[in-house]
Amino acid sequence: MGKSWSGPELEQALRRAVNRSVPDVYEQVSRQSPPTLLNGDGVVPSQSPGRRGFAWVALLVLLALIGGGAWWLLGRNAPVTLEEAKAIALEYAGVSAGEASFTKVELERDKFRQVYELRFSTIQAEYECEVDRRTGEIHKLETRPLAGPPPEPADQLLTAAQAEEIALAHAGAAAEQVREKKTKRESEDGQTYYKVEFEAGSMEYEYKIDAYTGAILEMEWDEED
């Protein structure tokens, strides 16, 4: 039986592979002689400030406002449908539509966004997922195995560092990129796990890692405010 890849796992594998093979063309590009500035008629544009500069700024602000308004209107008019949201959630979880039964389908609204809250289960696990109605992005995916593994002897408990390593590897974050890392061991309903929180890039991550098996029980990520 081959490995079953979830959406985030596939994306992370692609990200890591691209990061490893991205060529460094910086030196070659910077060695080229300073560029001739292009414009429609081949004349280097004047950078001098003054009334013309102000007119440009005003025009750009106006364009930005019009663009922002159009973006907002378009965003409102073309939401992701519930069926699309369900399909996105299943895809991310790596579950086929035939295996899953949905137990919760709600559209939550707050001031800034609308989110489909979905819960579905298969024979092995229950999933909770939030899908942004406007963008189709996944905000949260939680997985709970329904038939948990038998309890392991206490001497096989992972260290906090091992749990962190699993979480970082899954997020595709290098140790030097990680900020505000916090790891705690907690127990809930007889299950012991490490809660690993950290920030990398502009994202915040929260993982729950089974303290015995190293399995990822829950993961949640969001853009920092």
Binding site: Y26, V29, P35, T36, L38, N39, L63, A64, G67, G68
Partner: peptide, 15 residues
């Protein structure tokens, strides 16, 4: 990147 360097001044901020 060469094109970006030679045409960046033509970019009009639109987000």
């Amino acid at each position: 990147y060469l094109k970006i360097r030679s045409a960046a001044h033509l970019y009009r901020p639109q987000g």
